[in-house]
Design a protein around this nucleic acid. Structure first.
Length: 872
RNA sequence: GCCCGGAUGGCGAAAUUGGUAGACGCAAGGGACUUAAAAUCCCUCGGGGGCAACCCCUUGCCGGUUCGAUUCCGGCUCCGGGCACCA
């Protein structure tokens, strides 16, 4: 037994025990309640970062806790191994993405193992392994058969210099990140998954996800964006009819059919067929449409750009009044949503109001508030009235409330066959085609005579060649005939293989099912998935609140509907962990790019009230740097903290303790080097305290009936702590307060200097509680200290103890006393005292009397066992 | 721009269902031990007033509900996450 704490030795011993006895190898055990604990698998970027450490520690704490609570736990790990960073690294270093990725996996796996996570490593998978991605391809073909996967065109960012499609991330201020060229939008053929078919179910079953944070459910609901509205067809006026070469109608979708009589313009997207037709004969419109075709496709960019529009001079007719309404081409109308056209009602829509005011379009009020407070005609200096109200100036539909007006107008439109009520979702179908190399090949073959032919199942997987090195211009698969040259499966003629690969969100949409069927070479998933699914606890970053989680929910449902062993919802409980932030320091040299500095290397000084930050350049020159606030740790900002160095210096337990203690899991965590020292100090103090206790000799059996007041009090604290930790970890997931409670218990044990045999027995029990309670968080040191306390069985195999209710009983309790809501006194009362007794004691108290004075109590509020408020 | 969060001492935070604001820890200051340093241990530690008992103020800002608000409601400010090809 070591007298001084040696983290490396302790962690080696504990990990050797767990590995040697196969502690974390999970098996399906029919009659034990299972607990599938899953952390979002990492992208193998090269090194573990603090966000990973936080994520996997949270998962490990829960997995170990639930295991001790008697659950049959599965905690697997894998690698989200396809993606853009591998191609970027390949371009920089000339190394194929496959090699870079596999080397990173090997290194990061060693790092993960050093953290002492209770993972069943037999189930490890990497999405770049053909044994994994073959099932992406297989299921894609099933989706194609089921009509869930289909082909159509989509718009991408096009770099005209590199002749390549760019990811949104690679577009900076509308320019290509490598070429600096102005980005264009380009329409190309792509494959889509029909997630909108599932929109209603995805929305409805959010309500069943009671184990998900409310905010994530809200975000998903808003993302799916169900709105009930009316589709209205506006017939072409004569001028538009001539332009389009015949009669027709402009279709719009609106949630405000009640404002139909206030429509004073129509706005169509630049990509709308009418805009295209008009542009052919009008250079101004053509230029405007072309301008809209520049820049990135990102919605955030589109939303902040100034609302612009041009009048076409062409009209549609109001369905009830027959009045001509002018059609405008506008950059703020999205072709991808609804019909790509909207009716403009400036009086009752903020955006339309802004556009109309600037463009000199008339504003006509057709809704007034029910109270009549807002019933004048809107003038340009006023604002749009967007609330629901009573219709006015709306012909036969005047004087109706919102719903009545919508119903009546929709019915009248429907009777004439020019409109109907329908539901519109904001959610769009999922485009999965990527014009990139390092991803899962889409299993299709293009044949000049047969068209798009699916790759037959027996030819799967379509193997991705692993020796290519991308160069930034186009997809290298498209230049590799060994990959794309193939025979058509139907006619046998010369054909070309699809060179697009799948979105990496596909890979991560079902990996949790594969962990349960990890060694099955014959099927994507098998019956074992029914045992383990759904995931009982999923843990990952809040940044995945919408896309990854929504795609996974969709994919799981598709697998269910295709008859595979799957579930309705993949994740019963979700914990969204906050980001790990660190300070950012940078400077702009006179020439070249902005430089970022490692916060650990920045010196901060203060003189005359001015704070200065300085850093030393590689050449030795000391320069002033600016503080840019807190931000996520990233390589590009040079503010990452390497977990590996901390583990080597302090041990994994210290790092785990720090990340769990510093902030509750859902909150952002600000990095602090000093905090790590504090965590290390606490573990050493625990080590010393346990060894001092053990040196005092073996403890007598605890006789709870024979304890004196001091011993009872000590025992009460120990059991209160146990109850609190059990609740904090098991229910509240506030690991920080669990740790704080154990710290208090250890402090109390330090003050408890009872040398009697029963005192020693109380201490033995309390140290056992300290070590057990901390063991999910700092498992190595607790494993070893548990042995030091004289136990033979490994702590991880012990059941989680229940707090002794008898030990928690308190005879005397303290009541807080307020006078007029202000804290004035504390009084001790017997635990069972009734309200009258408590009132008597409180009102008789001289401190209370002082504040009441001559006044008589008007009201006395009593919160049993807690507080009395005397109102005078 | 839209959707979703957050803001409490010098710092990270706690206060679980509307009921003692600042637990626990970090930093700082003082002391003990030591030849010395490190380590360790003890004390102080939101602001103001008072010899003291004790009193007043304080949870981003403004307003409201309540006997009582860090907690609920309305309106802001700033920071963070997401916005469909980063993962």
């Amino acid at each position: 037994m070591q007298e001084s704490y040696d983290p490396a030795a302790v962690e080696r011993a504990a990990q050797e025990h767990w590995d040697g006895s196969g502690t974390f190898a999970a098996r399906e055990i029919p009659n034990r309640p299972k607990y599938y604990c899953l952390s979002m698998f990492p992208y193998p970027s090269g090194r573990l970062h603090m966000g990973h450490v936080r994520n996997y520690t949270i998962g490990d704490v829960l997995a170990r806790f639930m295991r001790m609570q008697g659950r049959n736990v599965l905690q697997p790990m894998g690698w989200d191994a396809f993606g853009l960073p591998a191609e970027n690294a390949a371009m920089q270093n000339g190394v194929p993405p496959a090699r870079w990725t596999r080397e990173n996996i090997a290194y990061m796996k060693r790092q993960l193992r050093s953290l002492g996570l209770g993972i069943d490593w037999r189930r490890e998978l990497a999405t770049c392994d053909p044994e994994y991605y073959r099932w992406n391809q297989w299921l894609f073909l099933r989706m194609l058969e089921a009509g869930i996967a289909y082909r159509r065109t989509g718009i991408v960012n096009w770099d005209p210099v590199d002749q390549t499609v760019l990811a949104n991330e690679q577009v900076i201020d509308g320019r290509g990140w490598r070429t600096g060229a102005l980005i264009e939008k380009r329409e190309i053929p792509m494959y889509y998954l029909n997630i909108t078919r599932y929109a209603q179910e995805l929305l409805e079953s959010l309500e069943t996800l009671s184990g998900w944070p409310e905010r994530v459910r809200l975000m998903q609901a808003n993302w799916i964006g169900r709105s009930e509205g009316t589709e209205i067809s506006f017939a072409y006026a004569g001028d538009l009819e001539r332009q389009m070469g015949g009669p027709g109608a402009l279709k719009v979708f609106t949630t405000r059919a009640d404002t139909l009589f206030g429509a004073t313009f129509m706005a169509i997207a630049a990509e709308h067929p009418i805009a295209t037709a008009v542009a052919a004969g009008d250079p101004r419109i053509a230029k405007f449409v072309a301008d809209c075709g520049r820049g990135s496709v990102m919605e955030a960019d589109l939303a902040v750009q100034e609302k612009q529009g041009l009048r076409t001079g062409l009209h549609v007719l109001h369905p009830f009044t027959g009045r001509p309404i002018e059609v405008w081409v506008a950059n703020y109308v999205l072709m991808g949503y609804g019909e790509g056209a909207v009716m403009g009602v400036p009086a009752h829509d903020e955006r339309d109001f802004e556009f109309a005011t600037r463009s000199g379009i008339p504003i006509e009020t057709v809704v007034k508030s029910a109270s009549g407070a807002y019933d004048t005609v809107v003038a340009p200096w006023q604002d749009a009235y967007g609330e629901h109200g009573i219709t006015v100036n709306s012909g036969e539909f005047s004087g109706l409330g919102f719903q009545a007006a919508v119903d009546a107008i929709a019915a009248a439109l429907e009777a004439r066959g020019i409109g109907r009520k329908r539901v519109q979702f904001r959610l769009r179908d999922w485009g999965i085609s990527r014009q990139r190399y390092w991803g899962c090949p889409i299993p299709l073959i293009h044949c000049a005579s047969c068209g798009d032919v699916p790759v037959p199942d027996e030819q799967l997987p379509v193997l991705l060649p692993e020796d290519l090195v991308p160069d930034g211009s186009g997809n290298p698969l498209g230049r590799t005939s060994a990959f794309f040259a193939c025979a058509c499966p139907k006619c046998g003629g010369t054909a070309r293989r699809e060179t697009d690969t799948m979105d990496t969100f596909v890979d991560s949409s079902w990996y949790f099912l594969r962990y349960a069927s990890f060694d099955n070479a014959q099927a994507m998933v098998d019956e074992r998935a029914r045992y383990w699914m759904p995931v009982d606890q999923y843990i990952g970053g809040i940044e995945h609140a919408i896309l990854h989680l929504l795609y996974s929910r969709f994919w799981t449902k598709v697998m269910r509907d295709l008859g595979l062993p799957s579930v309705d919802e993949p994740f019963s409980n979700l914990l969204t962990q906050g980001m790990v932030l660190n300070h950012i320091y940078s400077r702009h040299p006179a020439e070249g790019r902005r430089q970022f500095f490692d916060p650990a290397q920045v010196t901060t000084s203060e003189r005359d009230g001015t704070v200065r930050h300085t850093a030393t350049l590689p050449g030795g020159e000391v320069v002033e740097v600016q503080y840019d606030g807190l931000g996520t740790m990233s390589k590009s900002r040079n503010n990452g903290v390497d977990p590996q160095r901390l583990v080597e210096r302090f041990g994994a337990d210290t790092v785990r303790l720090f990340v769990m203690f510093t902030a509750p899991p859902e909150q952002t965590l600000e990095w602090s080097d000093e905090g790590v020292l504090g965590a290390s100090r606490f573990i050493r103090r625990l080590w010393t305290a346990v060894h001092e206790h053990v040196r005092a000799g073996a403890a007598a059996p605890l006789d709870v009936g024979a304890l004196n007041e001091g011993q009872k009090a000590m025992r009460r604290i120990a059991h209160q702590t146990l109850a609190k930790v059990t609740d904090d970890i098991g229910r509240r997931r506030t690991f920080n307060t669990a740790i704080a409670a154990v710290m208090e218990l250890l402090n109390a044990l330090g003050r408890f200097d009872d040398g009697s045999p029963q005192g020693h027995a109380v201490r033995q029990e309390a140290f056992g509680i300290v070590i057990t309670a901390l063991s999910p968080i700092v498992p190595h040191v607790c494993h070893v200290l548990w042995q030091a306390l004289g136990h033979d069985r490994a702590l991880i195999d012990e059941p989680w103890p229940a707090a002794d209710a008898a030990a928690l009983v308190q005879e005397q309790i303290e009541i807080s006393v307020q006078v007029n809501g202000k804290m004035r006194a504390r009084v001790g009362i017997a635990a069972g005292a009734d309200e009258a007794t408590v009132r008597g004691i409180v009102l008789a108290d001289e401190r209370v009397q002082k504040f009441i004075g001559a006044a008589s109590p008007r009201k006395v509020i009593y919160v049993p066992g807690k507080l009395v408020n005397v109102v005078v």
